[in-house]
Design a protein around this nucleic acid. Structure first.
Lengths: 207, 207, 207, 207
DNA sequence: GATGAATGAGAATTCATTCAT
DNA sequence: CATGAATGAATTCTCATTCAT
């Protein structure tokens, strides 16, 4: 690897494209979408400004790519679990754990994304174009939908009350994200996943 | 008031200051803090650019004022209920309702605020200065803290399990906000408040 | 004068006009012409913004008036001495003293003026209009001309070498101003005036 | 260099940076620091606004660079002469000539600078930041100090009276600058340098 | 492919001046 | 006369994007 532009810089064996993505992740996470500048990204990626535009049509699409590459493996794991043959309760707790892990790992980036996306209701939007926004939103919807699927299964099997599974899944999702973003998760992520699931299933009332 | 510059413009009897605040609310809600421009605000407020700077020291402080004027009555109502002599359960449900109402009414603006504030973890933040951010955060913390107070009361009285009241209040808060932002609240806000409270207390398990 | 707006503020017996001039002196001296703002002047003058424009057509003319009112008594004294029957040498030294006093007293304001005036060579000048600039310049020229008159007298009487009296007077003037602005003048202004005059007359060569 | 974008504009072989500096010199000289606008500079430099900010961090630093690039060769020449082994009298006259040349060449720019710097005494100064002001002032102080060095040498060698060398150098400096700015220097700069030196050494008294 | 100099649309902010009360 | 709210022209600076090498 790196056997020839040997001259300067520690030859970075990641492809230029990956260097840029890594740097972009860093900068977007720290600064948010607007405050992140292409200048800062290329400085960190140790590349030229034009190079960014060779690989990505613009800043917006760079951000989009970043999200997609993070989201896909997560989503795949989620689907796999949701569609497995495990008991409903176990599925749920495992999925809570997957969510927790993912949002803790990507806390800063997703904080940013969630603003750009869920933030703005609809109309006049110069920066993030509607098409993209819709795609982002679909990512969320699909992930949260996996929770919904499990809730439906539980209701069908008579395990859960006859709740609105959509509301339930958004609620559970919001709680998980809150734990991730507020750093409520301590050493033991399993315990935390269990806690959340338990309260969601049984409530906080003393019996 | 305004009884004679009848000539042009529908005589706007709101004070200039209020016109600006109203316009700012509109624009910040639609665009978010960064994408909102003073130019757009004055266009909507039908006023001159300088006028904005007569009333507000800068864009940031305009935003801040907006938030404060919305938040204060809400916070007052919240505290009153939290400190009342009502039964714990009733307090909780009423507070959930207050939260729901407030965040539904101010959904767009608070979506924006929540990013600007809770959004970016810590470091380099040019736009919203640390001092202000801290104040915003305190608003949230105080409000959520009122929920915590009631949870503590419930735990002390043996009504609730021995939960972490801080985690519990952030969780309940996130669920409420989710309902408000996702427009999960239908005609009957009381019913929705009851639903949320009920699930939070009793969980979704079928018994 | 002012015997009845007795209500608020310690009734300032100076006329509004004078209050404004005094405040303007203060602010122009501290900030320079450009950085001085009408807002700061009225704050200090404890008056309304419109009032300034009742008495002075604009900021520029306010500055001009200020200069004139300071300059006139000085110029009068200067002329009187230049045209007196005192011995040439004595005249010269006394005039140096008058200059020193005047420029020490008005150091800050005249620093500002000297930039606005002598500063800009000629053409495009939005702020200080050519007519005014010319007037300011004439003030200087007349004052310095008084020195020239005395030099001419000295040359005519065979006291001085056959120097260019114009160059000589500008030079002496510049030295005086340097002493005033650099605060080279200590307790005894007479001694300083004597020193300057002495060196100008006799040079620094050891004999 | 510049051998092929032959198409439009007279191919300006100066670098963009230099074009901007040249234009800035022109505009600052004509308008002074405050009244000079970046817009006018770029119009003259035939460049884009952003380009200015690629090369110079802001307007202030552009001005600073301008000064430094002019001042350095001058200062070097001055030091060289002051530290040479030439006779004191010859040193002095040569240095007067160097000053004259420099201030004649850069009359407009230095008129501007001298106000921005020596101008305002101390306090509230928004435009030119204290750090920079101090640097500018040091430039002057060092240059004038070179005159002081020679005066001291003269005093030590018994050539000059026991004068305050600091006052003397500021005085001589002010006279030189006056000649330069007032365009008192005719064809023969050597003659003018001699005249100034002569009067400074021997005074104007007829013997 | 990689580069980075050049660009200019866009944004926040300032402040002298006006004018209705 | 005195006032000060309202105004907008003017100014500095930012940063995504382009394009010639």
């Amino acid at each position: 690897m790196g056997h020839n532009n040997a001259a300067n810089h520690a030859d970075d064996s990641r492809s230029k494209r990956q260097q840029i993505l890594d740097a972009a992740y860093e900068v977007f996470s720290r600064k948010g979408y607007n405050r992140a500048t292409v200048d800062e990204i290329i400085a960190l990626a140790d590349t030229g400004k034009g190079t960014v535009y060779n690989y990505f049509v613009n800043k917006e699409q760079l951000f989009y790519t970043l999200i997609q590459e993070r989201n896909q493996p997560f989503e795949k794991a989620l689907i796999k679990m949701a569609e497995s043959e495990k008991p409903t309760m176990e599925k749920l707790e495992t999925m809570v754990k997957l969510f927790l892990q993912f949002y803790m790992e990507n806390a800063d980036l997703y904080r940013v994304l969630m603003h750009e996306i869920r933030g703005l209701s609809s109309d006049v939007l110069s920066t993030v174009k509607p098409e993209l926004r819709e795609k982002y939103r679909e990512d969320f919807t699909r992930s949260i939908g996996m929770l919904g699927k499990v809730f439906k299964e539980g209701v069908d099997r008579g395990l859960f009350r006859d709740i609105d599974t959509n509301k339930a899944s958004f609620s559970l999702f919001s709680v998980i994200v809150t734990f991730a973003f507020q750093k409520f998760v301590d050493e033991d992520i399993n315990a935390t996943a269990h806690l959340i699931t338990d309260v969601f299933l049984n409530g906080i009332t003393q019996r």
